[in-house]
């Protein structure tokens, strides 16, 4: 689908939502947003995916007029895991994993998009409260360690995830098409985990949070890939036996071909 068609579709959707009168508390802005796809399917040719988010800032007559323009921050979080970060050290001439830190509940995917630098949008305390921005994420180890160590391992975690493409921060990732209508693109690399993804939208103006909204989307393996993966997890014995059967069959066919030649 072309970008233009997508836009038309979403603009129509948003217009419909606005004109039908989405319930909103008086005197405040509301956020309305829609996503191009509700589910991302991982198939055999999966090389990452890109979702488009369109939305609009809803106002009614009672909304207080405030100076300045809107700022929008979009935070996408993937399913959580408890990752172990290891650090290699030289042991007898070779580099081996030595120290390790396990962190609690870290999102497997974390992307922050905004229309300008986060530091210009809000003060650090409010960014920290909502976990907006990689520097404002809290990484808690599951055991007591020195703060310097925690910081070193947490920094490494972020650095590695940034290079994997699983963490990202785009200070100009959100476009305001008009004063009220915005769009952003969510890029998912091919190494993403399956599960539920949550998109949080935060509308700021002059450093104050005016409204928030959240959306969900899922990442699923489908077809053959899903079948293989599920079989390996749920039926490992059967999966292993089937792998052997395939190997025996291929080897046997090769044997027949050998004898003929």
């Amino acid at each position: 689908m072309s970008m233009v068609r997508r836009f038309v579709m979403f603009a129509g959707l948003i217009f419909a939502m606005v004109s039908l009168g989405v319930p909103q508390s008086a005197r405040a802005e509301t956020l309305i947003a829609a996503l191009s796809e509700e589910t991302v399917f991982i198939e055999s040719n999966f090389a990452g995916a890109s979702l488009t988010l369109f939305g609009s800032v809803g106002r009614d007559a009672a909304t207080v007029a405030r100076p300045g323009s809107y700022d929008l921050v979009v935070v996408v979080r993937g399913p959580e895991e408890w990752p172990v970060v290891r650090r290699k050290d030289r042991v007898g001439g070779i580099w081996l994993n030595a120290d390790a830190v396990r962190f609690r509940s870290v999102p497997t995917y974390y992307a922050v998009q905004s229309n300008r630098a986060l530091s210009l949008i809000a003060e650090p305390p409010s960014l920290r409260r909502y976990g907006i921005g990689l520097t404002n994420l809290e990484f808690q180890p599951d055991a007591e360690i020195l703060e310097a160590e925690r910081l070193a391992f947490a920094t490494a975690l972020v650095r590695l995830r940034l290079s994997d493409g699983l963490f990202s921060e785009a200070p100009s990732g959100v476009d305001f098409l008009t004063e009220h209508v915005f769009s952003t693109r969510i890029d998912l690399p091919s190494n993403i985990r399956t599960g539920a993804y949550r998109i949080e939208l935060y509308l700021f103006r002059g450093g104050a949070l005016l409204a928030r909204e959240s959306l969900l989307f899922g990442v699923r393996k489908v077809g053959f890939e899903a079948f293989i993966f599920n079989a390996s997890v749920n039926q490992p014995l059967f999966y292993g036996a089937a792998s052997i059967a395939l190997a025996v069959l291929l080897g046997w066919i090769a044997g027949l071909m050998f004898r003929q030649s």
Partner: peptide, 27 residues
């Protein structure tokens, strides 16, 4: 064969798609 099944059960690390590619190519 036994090792493959044991790895599939204990570690879940047998990738049958990768294995199939390698097997066809190598035979």
């Amino acid at each position: 064969a036994f090792t493959t099944v044991m790895h599939a059960i204990a570690n879940g690390t047998v990738d049958v798609v990768l294995a199939a590619l390698l097997m066809v190519a190598s035979v």
